[in-house]
Design a protein around this nucleic acid. Structure first.
Lengths: 180, 180
DNA sequence: TCTTCCATGTAAATGGTTACATGATTTG
DNA sequence: CAAATCATGTAACCATTTACATGGAAGA
């Protein structure tokens, strides 16, 4: 499973708490792998039991105690091993497609509105990703190492959102024309 | 949840058995929603309990007995209701992105090979979808009703696979150049 | 003869979401 | 004064995947 390994990647770059990881994943691997903090806490405990990470308890006076996680040698080895494994290619899951397939059995106007809502959502994400691209990677063609790899993942997010937007447009045009 | 409703859509077009649905979904809604036969059997039972479908037992001499499912009035109403609901926009889940993010912590050659394997997989799917497009929808611009909606979902699958292929190419080029 | 197809399911495990709970601090 | 942020978690539930099980018929 990938969540463990997404966490290993994130912690290899910088040790941190579960709470912090939840936000970091949102902004990096998060384009392709999401997780709530509850899930992350549970997985971190499992990883600790397996010896992939070690914990440093930090008592805080004003806040609840922190647990800062660091990748161990075993964890690093596990990440390296996992990287050589084959992963299942991505499969899509989009309820919108089910709704489109079902248009004839309900209110076509509602489905059209839904297509446009999704269009707006994906366009917004696309714009956000493109803003990150411009702001954080001005030297696009000179990237190396981790920064290059982060950039490449971002590019995947951009490509995917772009294609959702284009598809939504095609669908709403076709549904409108059909009504005439 | 969408599986129930994907099944309602499929059964509205044509009554059928659980086994048959498993294959049909594969070829229609399946570009955006997959399900195994085990899951379908379980969901069909739930739908039967809820009164969304009715079952006709058909005894067969040579084969195990069939259960042919049909959508009831309640089921049709539920589908219509669901179509007016908002659905969460699609989110991506691709382990490949996690591996790309982690390249510096393992064997870069292995990850590159994996990117190319995924590229091949998506290219194959794309070709398959395009073949269906050519074979089954030669009158692309004159489509109406269910056939149009099926076509639009297929177009979404094509757009998505296309963007995966393009992305994989971008990633493998970048990873190769980085090595130099 | 071996594989695929038809046709049904159960059981267990894993993964993920939602709801609930606590409590101080900083920001608006 | 209210809301968001930091920081942790538990519990219950739901969805999905994988493995196991059966058994005849048709086709390669």
């Amino acid at each position: 499973m990938a969540l463990e390994h997404a966490i290993l990647v994130a912690l290899s770059e910088q040790a941190g708490t579960g709470y912090e990881l939840a936000r970091r994943l949102d902004r990096s691997t998060g384009y392709f792998w999401q997780a709530t903090h509850q899930q992350i806490y549970r997985v971190l405990r499992r990883m600790d039991d397996a010896g992939w990470v070690s914990v440093e308890h930090i008592a805080q006076s004003t806040r609840p105690d922190k647990k800062v996680y660091t990748v161990t040698g075993t964890g690093a080895a596990e990440l390296a091993r996992w990287l050589t494994e084959q992963a299942p290619p991505a499969e899509l899951r989009d309820e919108l497609a089910v709704k489109i397939r079902g248009v004839t059995h309900g209110d076509r106007g509602a489905v059209l509105a839904e297509v446009e809502r999704h269009r707006a959502h994906h366009a917004e994400r696309l714009a956000a990703y493109q803003a990150i691209e411009l702001r954080d990677y001005p030297e696009r063609h000179a990237l190396k190492g981790t920064r290059l790899h982060q950039f490449l993942v971002l590019r995947g997010g951009i490509a995917a959102e772009q294609s959702f937007v284009t598809w939504c447009d095609e669908v709403s045009t076709a549904l409108r024309l059909e009504t005439l």
